[in-house]
């Protein structure tokens, strides 16, 4: 067991373990400085087809 883990409380350890799966959300995030617009910068008026629905991107959850 490493030095850091030995120094962590049991509560902190459990919270860390719970949070681990969420780390994948931060992987492959678009570069904020990139030229292309990623999902976070997509045109909200763009027309998309989802499950047969013809929607505006801003309609999506």
């Amino acid at each position: 067991m490493s030095f850091f883990i030995k120094r962590m409380s049991r509560r902190t350890l459990v919270q860390t373990l719970i949070a681990l799966p969420a780390l994948s959300l931060f992987r492959n995030r678009p570069d904020a400085n990139a030229d292309h617009a990623g999902p976070s910068r997509a045109d909200p008026d763009e027309i998309v087809e989802v499950n047969g629905w013809i929607l505006k991107r801003s309609d999506l959850a």
Binding site: E49, G52, W53, I54, D59
Partner: peptide, 24 residues
């Protein structure tokens, strides 16, 4: 044709279209 109609409803803020599964 259905896509055109769906896009027009969005453009004019009139509604939304769902295309039948068998067509898609």
């Amino acid at each position: 044709g259905l896509r055109l109609f769906g896009a027009t409803l969005i453009e004019k803020n009139l509604g939304r279209v769902r295309i039948a599964d068998w067509i898609g």
